[in-house]
Simulated scan of single mutants.
Amino acid sequence: METVWAELELMRGPLVAFVLSGLIGWEREQRRRGAGLRTYILIGVSAALFVVLADTLIVRFSDNSELVRFDLVGVLGAVVSGVSFLGAGAIFSDRSGGQAKGLTTAAGMLATAGVGVACGLHLYVLATGATLLILFTLGVLGRLADRHKPEEERGN
């Protein structure tokens, strides 16, 4: 029974990532962007899960042998690489003007992975603050930027 409680304790990070990433995904969903609620939740929860798993492996096996090397920074690098790969798929060029589309989506995915990593490390105040900054950037600053675009570019 003790193992179940320990695992439930580990679930805090992914659960908080679910909520915070969901807020970001909800904002994207409401603005009808390519990646929405489910995508952002999966990115945030996955990032948190990988960090929790890496941390658990380090705690569980680090004392057993000096030959075993653990690298939490490597896990973070893998999360960034994986999410960047997803983000690259969201970016495309407009044929008429050669203007890149999807950059904000890709950046939002990467930022959401950062929130997930913070949750996986149980840095909930940092994760919440970052989420608020991301929401402000996507919401308030996004609307301000849209107002200053030419009419034919709005809503893209």
Rank of each mutant, 00 (worst) to 15 (best):
E2Q: 12
T3R: 04
T3Q: 02
A6S: 06
E7T: 11
E7K: 04
L8S: 05
E9V: 03
L10Q: 10
R12A: 14
R12H: 07
R12D: 09
G13K: 05
P14A: 00
P14R: 03
L15H: 01
L15K: 01
V16A: 04
V19Q: 00
V19N: 09
V19P: 08
V19A: 12
L20R: 03
G22R: 07
G22I: 06
I24Q: 01
I24L: 10
I24S: 06
I24N: 01
I24F: 05
R28K: 07
E29H: 09
Q30M: 15
R32A: 09
R33K: 15
A35T: 03
A35Y: 05
A35R: 04
A35W: 02
L37M: 08
L37K: 05
T39I: 11
T39M: 09
Y40E: 12
I41S: 08
I41R: 06
I41Y: 04
L42I: 08
V45N: 02
S46P: 00
S46N: 06
A48K: 02
A48P: 04
F50H: 11
F50K: 12
V51W: 01
V51L: 15
A54V: 07
T56E: 15
T56R: 15
L57T: 14
L57F: 15
L57D: 11
I58C: 07
V59S: 13
V59Y: 09
R60N: 06
F61H: 06
S62T: 00
S62A: 05
N64Q: 15
S65Y: 06
E66L: 11
E66T: 07
L67M: 02
V68F: 00
V68T: 02
V68W: 03
V68E: 13
F70I: 03
L72T: 13
L76S: 10
V80F: 11
V80S: 13
S81D: 12
L86A: 13
L86P: 10
L86N: 10
G87M: 07
G89I: 04
G89H: 06
A90R: 12
I91A: 11
I91D: 09
R95Q: 10
S96F: 09
S96R: 14
G97Y: 05
G98L: 05
A100N: 07
G102V: 06
G102M: 10
G102I: 06
T104E: 03
T105Y: 02
A107G: 13
A107N: 10
G108S: 07
G108T: 00
L110V: 14
L110I: 12
L110W: 05
L110P: 05
A111V: 02
A113C: 08
G116E: 00
G116W: 04
G116A: 13
A118F: 00
A118P: 01
C119I: 07
C119E: 08
G120L: 09
G120V: 07
G120Q: 00
H122G: 13
H122T: 13
G129E: 00
A130I: 08
T131H: 04
I134W: 00
I134K: 12
I134M: 02
F136P: 03
F136L: 11
F136K: 04
T137F: 09
T137G: 14
T137Q: 10
L138E: 01
L138Q: 00
G139E: 03
G139C: 05
V140W: 09
G142A: 10
R143D: 15
R143W: 14
A145T: 12
A145K: 14
K149V: 09
P150A: 15
E151G: 08
E153P: 01
R154Y: 06
G155W: 11
G155K: 11
